[in-house]
Design a protein around this nucleic acid. Structure first.
Lengths: 239, 239
DNA sequence: CCGAATAGTAATAAATTGTAATAATTTTAT
DNA sequence: ATAAAATTATTACAATTTATTACTATTCGG
């Protein structure tokens, strides 16, 4: 497959968005503009690219051109809508006929934008989707870690985190849904990397999981990745 | 205020919709068509009408013309969006300028349809909104796999899925009711394709079926396709 | 100094994985 | 139809890895 790309500058309350558009110039314009709006945006050029991208990154929103080489936008939309009902789908097309719009909606699009679409318009549609996500009661009351105060809190509860465990938790939060290897975790804590330290790491993780559980986060929030390390599976923000 | 009206024929899985459009003929066309689609549809002609209507009936969706006597569609949208974040808003307008579309989204519209809008198109947009409501995984008891959390759950129960079995299950969910060949399943797990791996695959499938059964899914959810592979027969979604 | 929280260590329990052995099922051959 | 062969299901077990608990030592604030 061709090389996918994204621009750097992820911000905190952002969306993960894939732009699937084979017109290179347009793709780049969209990616750049949406990135500037604070989202993590991946540009790709075909269904194949998207599938590969999706195996590696979770996505909140797909922006699909209808006319693509290989599988078209309708196909992608229905396929993803089926397995991932909560994903957002915005479709772009020059076909302005009613039939096409209806087909777009039926294949699972949340929004159907007739081309030409300006970056501003697209960004507004993305924000509209984001607002819906933010208003979802399940995405509210996200626990926060105050690093300076060493306090972990949500709307109801608060627990302190010890000096020792703090950099471990901070590191895990900064790499959401990614596996951190044992040696990386030990380095976060300024420990030597050896078997004895590794054994104690399980205890530290266990203690962190207990803290997180006491905040109402499902246990284990920090899950083992067999023979590799650990990953944090809950959403926590750092303030 | 003027007399509001709605046509009879409410069905069970319907939406409560208000059409706010001061063009009487158009209003009537929309109300009639959407009612025919099985929704409970209220026609009204101004913000004032809508407010009165809303005191008496709960509404899932507002269809707003932009140009209205008194408060315009933007005003209504932001006011309702503010107070009722989960309400759906579709805006209709002849103003096709980008600025107006953006203003529409910013004031809280989920969808912005440039006039002229056909009844069919409007109905498709309404269905799209309804599907979003219905498909909201939080609103149904379809088992869901949270890949990031490695958790499989329904309304009542929750089981974790090991690192190893996760990609296998994910692959099966993404190809619902399709047979995946042995080699495809092994590739999902990054295993070599040989007889020994194939033998162990039966154990992995068995372990997955046990997990699924413990969620109340009829066993075997993953069924063998003789001499070919396996297929998942239960509906599971990925969040 | 005391007492509570924290840190390190060790021992034990539990989970994950791969493999093998056996049981059950389906197909094929007679 | 029946027996044999092939295929898949289930169970069991051992090796490895991780989770949990308990205990001691240390640190920190009052």
């Amino acid at each position: 497959m061709e090389e996918l790309y994204w621009l750097e500058d992820p911000m905190d309350s952002m969306l993960s968005v894939a732009v699937v558009e084979d017109h290179r110039a347009l793709n780049e314009i969209f990616v750049e503009y949406l990135t500037g709006c604070g989202h993590r945006v991946y540009g790709c050029f075909s269904a194949e690219d998207l599938d590969e991208l999706f195996t590696a990154h979770s996505l909140d929103l797909l922006i699909l051109d209808v006319n693509l080489p290989g599988e078209d936008g309708f196909g992608i939309a229905s396929r993803y809508r089926n397995a991932y009902p909560s994903i957002g789908i915005i479709m772009l097309t020059v076909k302005a006929h009613v039939k096409d719009k209806i087909r777009g909606y039926e294949s699972g699009a949340d929004l159907y934008l007739p081309k030409p679409v300006s970056s501003e318009e697209l960004a507004a549609a993305v924000m509209s989707f984001k607002r819906r996500l933010d208003n979802d009661p399940h995405n509210q009351n996200v626990p926060k870690l105050d690093v300076a105060k060493r306090v972990l809190s949500n709307n109801l509860l608060r627990v302190t985190v010890s000096q020792q465990l703090l950099p471990l938790l901070k590191g895990l939060i900064e790499a959401p849904n990614q596996t951190l290897e044992y040696w990386q975790l030990l380095e976060l804590m300024d420990k030597e990397v050896n078997d004895i330290s590794k054994a104690s790491l399980t205890v530290y993780i266990h203690r962190l999981n207990k803290k997180l559980e006491s905040l109402g986060i499902p246990n284990p929030a920090i899950q083992v990745v067999w023979k590799s390390g650990y990953q944090l599976t809950a959403k926590i923000i750092i303030v």
